[in-house]
Amino acid sequence: MRKKSLIALVFTVMLGCSAPPDRQTITVKGSDTMVLLGQRWAEVYMKAHPDVTIQVTGGGSGTGIAALINGTTQICQASRPMKAEEKNSVKEQRHGDAVETPVALDALAVYLNKDNPVEHLDMDQVARIFRGEVTNWKEVGGKNAPIVLYGRENNSGTYVFFKEHVLKNADYAEKYQALPGTAAVINAVQKDPGGVGYGGIGYAKDVKTISIAKDPAANPVAPTMDNVLNNTYPLSRQLFWYTAGAPAGAMKDFVDWVLGPEGQKIVTDVGYYPLKAQAQ
C-alpha cells in the first residue's frame, strides 16, 4: 500500500507541476483501506472536471486525522469514526468543526488461507484467536495446525476498529504480526496455510472470507452486500470523509458527486458497498 500511495503521490506531484495556476487542488489523505477507492474517485472526477486536481495519498486513518488537524490535508479518509479528542483538536487548530460524511460501507472481513477448512467463526472465537487465547485451528473446528495472526500497524483505522469491536478493547496477542497495509496482510494469508488476517472486503483476493456469527447461538453471516445493507453481518462499518468545517466550493461539488450515483457506482466497482440511501 505504501508503494501505491507513493506512486499516486509522484503522479499527482507531476500533474500539479504541469497545471496552470488557476486550477483548484483538493488533497485527500488517510485510510489505507480507502486509498484505492479515493484514487478511483479522483481519476474519474478529474476526467470530467479538468479544472480540478485531486491528490490522494494513504498512510492510515491515524495519519490522515493527524494531517487534518495539522492542516496538511483538506479531506481526511478514515475507516473509523474520529475520537472526541481528535475532533476537539481539529476545532482548536483549524477553527472549524470536524464534519463527518459517511461515503461508503465496508464489511470488515476475516481472511483465511484458501486451504483452511474452517468456514465460519463466531465473534467470540475471532476475539479469542486474536487475543492469543486460541492458538490451534483444531480448537475452532479446523486442522491440527498453529494459528498465525496477521493484521495492520497501530496507525490503521482498521486496527482500532477491530480492537474495539472484536477484541472489546483488549490488547492483541503478543505474537500478532503487524504488517504495513492491507495488501501485505492479504499476501501473508495467501502464503501461510495457518494464517488469519482482517481488512476491508475490497481487498479480498485469493483468500477465503469467512462467515461470522454474532454469538455462538446465532447463524453465521457472510460478508456480502445484502448482509451489510440489512445490518446482519456483525462487522459492517461505515467509511468516512472528514473535513474541517462544512465542505464548500469545488470541494463541495466533489463530495456531492461522490455521494451521487456515479460516485457510489465506483464504490461497488472497487469492491466496497454503496451507502444505504443509494442502494434502495
Binding site: G60, T63, A66, N70, S89, E153, N154, N155, A178
Partner: peptide, 16 residues
Amino acid sequence: RTLSATIAAEMAEAVF
C-alpha cells in the same frame, strides 16, 4: 519487532 521498525511504523501516527 525492532527499535528502528517501530519508529518507522508508528511515528506517522503518533499525535504530536
